[in-house]
Simulated scan of single mutants.
Amino acid sequence: MATVILVRHGRSTANTSGVLAGRTPGVHLDEVGRTQADAVADRIAAAGPVALAASPLERCLQTAAPIAAATGLEVTVDAALQEVGYGGWQGRTIKELLDEPLWKTVQSTPSQATFPEGECLGDMAARIAGALRAHDAAVEAEHGAGAVWVAVSHGDPIKAALADALGLDFDLFQRIHVDPGSVSIVRYGSTRPTVLAMNTHAGDLAWLKAPVARPDDADVGGGAGPTTSPHGS
């Protein structure tokens, strides 16, 4: 049973301009985003990850670069971790998209939302869940059940992955919020996933090294927690 650290890329130039970047090439981290990427790398290095995968889009590769430098890992680029294919919505401002009839569907019943000439949100959810589980199984097979690894992706795919891990109906995934530069953590098991953290911004992750006595069982009553504080020293 490995553990994946899900990292949303740092803040990008599209984030601050209110544009839905999607898969548009040439969208880079801004100064804040680069600072966020460095901070995430410091947090993650303490967990001793054994593998690092990332979306092929520039903002994710720029976020993964300091993680790779801090951990000595090579970045495995995986197109299955990339952003939603927003099709005709790509490159448009959020302000103008608010008036599109599809906007209400995206908000209330995203499983029924297919972007014009683009991807169905339900298909995206299946794509990201399948990719993460495949990577996770490979990491566990090579490095053992206590291994920690990292996936750098985008807001909606990470939200979908967390909804899947929580067992939520996908139409509820908009209840989850994931900021640029944030870290969420999922431990996949043979019986069910466990969500260890969502949308966190601070604290080293050395506590993820702690062995788990019964990895497929929930701690009835909440358990004693890790011996190392998840908030760092």
Score class of each variant (00 low, 15 high):
G33S: 05
L98H: 15
A151R: 08
V75D: 09
N15C: 11
A197N: 05
A141Q: 08
P157H: 07
L98R: 08
A41S: 08
E58R: 01
Q36D: 00
Q62V: 10
D78Q: 10
S111H: 13
R127S: 01
F170V: 12
L81S: 04
R8Y: 04
R187F: 03
A134G: 05
Y188C: 04
A21I: 12
L208I: 06
E83S: 02
R92L: 13
T200N: 13
T93P: 09
D78K: 12
D123E: 06
L98S: 01
E58L: 15
I5Q: 09
P193N: 02
G122E: 04
F173M: 06
F170W: 09
E119I: 13
A224S: 05
I94V: 14
E96L: 03
N199H: 09
A131E: 09
S12D: 00
G130I: 10
G203F: 01
G146T: 10
V220F: 08
R59V: 11
S153R: 11
A151Y: 04
V148K: 00
A113P: 09
H154T: 09
I94Y: 10
I67A: 14
A131T: 09
F173V: 12
H154S: 01
S229W: 11
D179L: 00
H28R: 15
V7A: 03
M198K: 07
T63M: 04
V148N: 03
L97V: 06
